[in-house]
């Protein structure tokens, strides 16, 4: 397997202004679709399950993850290669999602969100009886 390449964290520019100061980053995501569902996997290191907010309304999926500072006040920086902050990302979904069956898991800083599609109305044949 190839060696992993360094990727700088992408800073996000939310359309809505934040009330709390601090930086906001875009989590890297994988999104794939099968016949039954859409799965979204997002890397959100530092986010614990109770600090993750997933919201789906009117085809817009919003992910917000808060990161608690891991450094205590008496620590001084020696080397700083990455910054920490909130995670924010929004997607527009083209499919109708079955809201009741959404499943989200957060493990080791990786979110796996499963969005099942609503079963399409099956075409019904109407037979005409000769009268």
């Amino acid at each position: 397997m190839a060696d992993i390449q360094v990727k700088e964290k992408q800073e996000s520019t939310p359309s809505v202004e934040q009330t709390t100061p601090g930086r906001t980053f875009m989590p890297a995501v994988d999104i794939f679709e099968t016949e039954r569902d859409i799965t979204l996997i997002a890397d959100m290191p530092g986010v614990s399950p109770d600090h993750l907010d997933i919201d789906l309304r009117e085809n817009t999926l919003t992910l917000v993850g808060d990161v608690a500072a891991s450094e205590s006040a008496d620590e001084a920086d020696v080397l700083r290669e990455y910054e920490t902050g909130k995670y924010f990302r929004q997607f527009t979904l083209s499919e109708v999602i079955d809201q009741g069956k959404i499943d989200a898991k957060l493990n080791d800083g990786v979110l796996r969100l499963s969005l099942p599609k609503v079963e399409k109305a099956k075409p019904r044949k109407i037979s005409v009886q000769p009268g």
Binding site: I4, V6, S72, E75, V78, R80, E81, Y82
Partner: peptide, 15 residues
């Protein structure tokens, strides 16, 4: 400080 360009990126602090 410019990152070393090696994964993973690290932060080092001291007390």
């Amino acid at each position: 400080q410019r990152s070393a360009g090696v994964f993973p990126l690290i932060n080092v602090t001291e007390d």
